[in-house]
């Protein structure tokens, strides 16, 4: 692969990552991956009316409350990120 091609492939990839939030890459950490997974799941729950009802019945809360709590949880579904190694 010529260096030029590699360069364009990279910019394309960057472009894709910027465009499609949640797309993985080679250097993805476990925390990032998990956070994406959780956010996708939470968004999917809010987006499916039957799952909203299901959770609302189990928790005995209103559907509005379930949607709100799920959306709130999307902010940080898996706790704070692990501390970065200094080196």
């Amino acid at each position: 692969m010529s260096s030029e091609l590699r360069y364009t492939a990279n910019t394309q990839l960057e472009h894709l990552h910027a465009r499609y939030t949640g797309t993985g890459h080679a250097d993805l950490t476990k925390y990032e991956w998990l956070t994406h997974q959780h956010r996708d799941t939470l968004a999917s729950i809010v987006g499916h009316p039957t799952l909203n009802s299901y959770l609302a019945i189990a928790e005995n809360e209103s559907i509005g409350r379930i949607k709100f709590e799920m959306t709130e949880r999307m902010l940080q579904p898996c706790g704070p990120p692990p501390p970065k190694d200094e080196d």
């Binding site: 990032e32 956070t35 999307m74 902010l75 940080q76 704070p80 990120p81 692990p82 970065k84």
Partner: peptide, 16 residues
């Protein structure tokens, strides 16, 4: 809207 970019980067949880 809520922006999560800072809390994703802050291990102390303060940003969150």
């Amino acid at each position: 809207e809520v922006d999560y970019s800072e809390s994703d980067q802050d291990p102390s949880g303060e940003a969150f």
